[in-house]
Nucleic acid binder design. Structure first.
Length: 158
DNA sequence: GCCAACGTTGGC
DNA sequence: GCCAACGTTGGC
């Protein structure tokens, strides 16, 4: 069985929050609208069913990792790119030749204690985390040690 | 609201 | 293929 991987997905909670995910039918949702090529490549090629995701709230007074989601479907074409009414519409993308990809995720849990960006920056073993080095990337890998460290700080039971 | 960092576009 | 101009992200 292939090893499960870890990721961090960013979202502005005013657009879509962890609580929003929890409330969806089946607590699942399409992670669509990603319009950055590096993040697209990750979604298309690397994010697989069963992988786990740190849910990060950005663009708020205290940006923070707030919980965990699970990937329930790996990368497949993001059809919102083909919908002229979608705010993520991209006329270059077609059904035959999709440019953009999405995955489906399911709510797993909220951290008993959110781990803020300010706190993440104080944790030595997270010094080379992508979030702290290339903060704009919205879909990014998390190493197992980093994952464990963040869960520990979020007071998530092992 | 500002602005640094970064990604994308398009002229050459 | 280079690079200037421009647009976006996201912390502060």
């Amino acid at each position: 069985m292939p090893m499960r991987k870890y990721w961090l997905f960013k979202s502005e909670p005013s657009t879509f929050s962890l609580e929003d995910l929890k409330k969806r039918p089946g607590s699942t949702e399409h992670w669509d609208g990603v319009r950055n090529f590096q993040a697209r490549n990750t979604l298309r090629d690397e994010v697989k069913e069963g992988d786990l995701v740190l849910f990060y709230h950005s663009s708020i007074p205290e940006p923070a990792v707030v919980g965990i989601a699970e990937v329930v479907r790996g990368g497949y074409p993001d059809w919102t790119a083909c919908d002229p009414r979608s705010e993520h519409f991209d006329p270059r993308s077609t059904e035959a030749k999709p440019i953009w990809y999405m995955v489906d995720v399911r709510y797993v849990k909220s951290f008993p204690r959110s781990v803020t960006l300010a706190e993440l920056k104080t944790i030595p073993e997270l010094a080379d985390m992508v979030l702290l080095r290339k903060s704009r990337l919205s879909i990014q890998p998390v190493r197992e040690k980093q994952w464990q460290s963040i869960l520990h700080h979020g007071e998530v039971d092992a």
